[in-house]
Structure formats: structure tokens, C-alpha cells
Simulated assay, not measured.
Amino acid sequence: MATQVVDPSASTWEAASTHRTPGIDIKPLLQRDGEGRSFEFNVVRFGGEDFWSPRHRHNFDQIRIGLEGETQYGPHRKLPARTIGYYPEGTYYGPLSVSGGPSLQAILQFDGAGRGGYVNYVHLDKATAELKELGEFRKGFWHPHDGGKAVDGYQASWERATGREMIYPEPRFDEAVYMHVDAFSWVPVDGSPVRSKHLGSFGERGLSIGMHLVPAGASLTIGAPGRSTVAFVLTGEVRAGGAGVGQHSALFAEDEDAVEVRGAADDSELVVITLPTFD
């Protein structure tokens, strides 16, 4: 599969799936569909003070990159700009709220080590529409018209889309992990002008999160044999395949693919995520 490069600057905001709560808009970046291989990467805008989502958990992993504003994830957890959160499968987080205006994040959702079967918005939206004929989504839960027990909104739509009962994996972490990227130091890379930060590795399937600082004219190859790699331009601009890739754009290299990027600004920061391998 060819390497993908996506710049959302020309895209318009669209409403996210309504299985959870109003007040979430997205600009799609990357999406891969397929049993055991699905993931979704979007720039996400959370609305004003009316936005709220209950404390919940998922059967997949999430990585959330704070871009603008601040999102509250419960009484003592916040995701401001330049903080990256890892929300593991099976781990509760939230409730979510914002204050002082909208917040902006880049959110990557994908199968974790438990391989729960991530369902992207294309399939989730169809299932959500069908469930609206049979019940009501309210405050993050689906309430069936027949008076049955309320179900988590995502769980209800996932089960409708897959025809299976959702099994939540045993949580490996009590809480989400928040990484304050500016507290990590840049480390030289093999004599190259590019510098790197390793933010964390999680689980036996090789999920890792890191960053690269790419000066103007310096080059970096993204991708590794047998691995799927997502890169996000946090600041600055790089060039890939002869095209400019600006701030808040994304690149994807799958399996045997690799993409060479070259710095096009004084300094460009890339967040690089190596997705779990199931080989």
C-alpha cells in the first residue's frame, strides 16, 4: 500500500458520530479499514461549555495530542496543548468537559494488544443511525425505547455494527498516561542534525510514541519493515514526495513502505507513533 500524506487545511469541519454527545467536530486525517487492522486519525474539536461526555472505557487504544485549548478528563486530569495522552484499552477515563472555549486535539484510535476490533466512523455512524430508530442516545448512553437497560453509546453502536457482544479487556493501567512533551529532552540521532525524544513504549505488541525535531534541509525516514507508522506534524512544515506537509498534517507508512521527509521550516516537530504489530 502506498504511503499516505494528508493535509486537512482545505477540509471543512464535520460532525462526529453522535453515539456519545453533541459538540464534537472532526477533520479526517487517516483511516484504514479491515478486520484487525482498522484505525482512525482525526483532528477533533470539542465544543464549548455545553459539551460533556461521561466517564467510560473502550475495547481499543487511543492517543490524544493536545493542540489548542484544554480538555478536562475528570477532576484531576487535563489535556492542554503540547501534552500527549495515552488512553489504554479497558481503562476508564473522564468525564470529559471543556471551559473557556473549544479545545483542539489530534486523536488516533486503533486496536490495542487485546485486538478488540476497532470499528471506524463509517461503520459506526450507520449502526448509530439504526439504533436511533430503536432508542435514544442521551448523555453518552443509548436508552432503548422498550425500557431496557441503558448501554454505553459506543458499546451499543459497536455491538450493532459487529453483531457481537463487546468484551472489555482487563485494564493494564489504572489511569491514562499523560506525557508533557516539553519536559523530555532532545537527543541527537547518529550524527544527524535531526534530534529525537522517546516518550514511551507500551505493551508486548510494540506500541511506541516519540518525536523528531527536523531542521530546515535535514531529512528523516519514517517507517520500519513490517510495521505501520503514523506521523503528525505538530509544528513547522516538512516536504514528502515533493509536496509540502504543513502543521497538523499527517503521514502514514505501512508494512514495507517508508517515507522520507525533509525539513521545510527552521525547525519542525513530528510526533511519530508506531502501531502495535500482531505478527
Rank of each mutant, 00 (worst) to 15 (best):
A2Y: 01
T12F: 08
E14H: 03
S17R: 05
R20W: 13
I26Q: 05
I26H: 02
P28A: 03
Q31T: 15
S38N: 08
N42Y: 10
F46G: 00
F46S: 04
W52F: 14
P54N: 11
R55Y: 02
R64K: 02
G66P: 03
H76N: 14
K78C: 00
G90Y: 13
T91F: 07
I107F: 00
Q109R: 15
F110L: 15
G112R: 06
Y118H: 12
Y118D: 08
Y118N: 08
L124E: 12
K126Y: 00
E133V: 07
G140I: 04
W142N: 00
D152A: 12
A156N: 09
S157L: 11
R160W: 02
G163F: 04
R164C: 02
R164K: 12
E165P: 00
E165G: 03
F173V: 02
D174I: 09
E175Y: 04
E175S: 05
V177A: 01
P188G: 12
S192R: 08
P193C: 01
R195C: 12
K197T: 03
G203A: 10
R205S: 14
A216E: 15
A218P: 10
A218L: 11
S228M: 06
A231L: 04
F232P: 02
T235Y: 02
G236R: 13
E237K: 14
A243K: 15
G246A: 12
L251Y: 07
A253H: 10
V272H: 06
V272K: 04
P276A: 12
